[in-house]
Design a protein around this nucleic acid. Structure first.
Length: 261
DNA sequence: TTCCATGTTCCGCA
DNA sequence: TTGCGGAACATGGA
């Protein structure tokens, strides 16, 4: 489930299992998952190295294998699986890292929308892609968010999902933030009150943090979250209204027809 | 069989 | 210039 919180969990998982372990081999099982890098260069750049640290910016993941960085984007169905026995290798493992200790880390991705690549410099990558601030860092400031909202037009959900405005929010968490702030997903950005802009800013951070904290403890998102009610006609756990379905920014959108205005 | 899916990119149009 | 709709990508799962 790769939006920001999921990628953060993957980053921690990667750090827990793979950091400092010498890479003894790499099996690129499906080259279609590779970005710009060719298979041979990818393997030669990483074998014999060990990952030293990890970074995440929005949905983008980087692991330092100096001088090159491993880059991962999880697309819609990307996942990481650390395992010891060959039989445990996941079904859609596209790239497998073998470590000297005999364990393996698979990048698993059924739909192949993800990317495995090498980059020279994460900061340059972030700048080139024109990614906005990561909402869980100090670079995400209310002032900046307010300024962007003032200049922007269109539906508020589109703004939340635009990676050049905020990096990391996808379809589910955009709906969640709007639901929890009682804002209709199709409301024009120019019709948000300053209190609503502030509430949205706060809600985004709180929801992402809460999801990560709970996931670390093996807990799902709280029962009051819209994420458990993504179906037309469901009951809204906050106000008893009816959950509606529409399309915004090209994506299926769920909202409460009663309390989101 | 048909519809839908947590993402990104590209094209055409207003 | 900005924003949006639609399609494409690849592969299931319900």
């Amino acid at each position: 489930m790769p939006e920001l919180p999921e990628v953060e969990i993957y980053a921690r998982y990667f750090a827990r299992h793979a950091l400092g372990q010498p890479i003894s081999g790499i099996d690129v099982r499906d080259e279609r998952i590779l970005g710009k890098v060719r298979k041979r260069k990818f393997v030669e750049s990483l074998v014999g190295k060990a990952f030293k640290s990890v970074r995440r910016h929005g949905k983008n993941f980087f692991a330092d294998a100096g001088p090159a960085w491993l880059y991962l984007h999880f697309g819609m169905t990307g996942d990481l699986v650390y395992y010891r026995k060959a039989i445990e290798r996941p079904q859609f493992a596209r790239v497998v890292f073998d470590f000297e200790n005999g364990a393996h880390l698979a990048y698993d991705d059924m739909r192949l929308f993800g990317v495995v690549d090498l980059v020279d410099d994460p900061d340059a990558f972030i700048a080139e892609r024109r990614l906005g601030p990561d909402p869980l860092t100090d670079s995400f400031r209310l002032r900046d968010f307010q300024r962007i909202v003032e200049r922007r037009r269109g539906a508020v959900k589109s703004l939340l999902m635009s990676q050049d405005i905020i990096a990391g929010i996808g379809n589910l968490y955009a709906d969640e933030a709007l639901y929890q702030t009682s804002i209709h997903p199709q409301r024009g950005v120019d019709r948000l009150s300053s209190a609503e802009v502030k509430a949205l800013f706060t809600a985004v951070r709180r929801i992402l943090r809460e999801t990560i904290l709970r996931a670390e403890r093996g807990l799902d998102r709280p029962p009051r979250y819209l994420i458990h009610r993504r179906e037309e006609g469901e009951r809204c756990p906050l106000c008893g209204g009816t959950i509606r379905r529409t399309v915004v920014f090209g994506r299926t959108t769920y909202y409460c027809g009663k309390h989101q205005r």
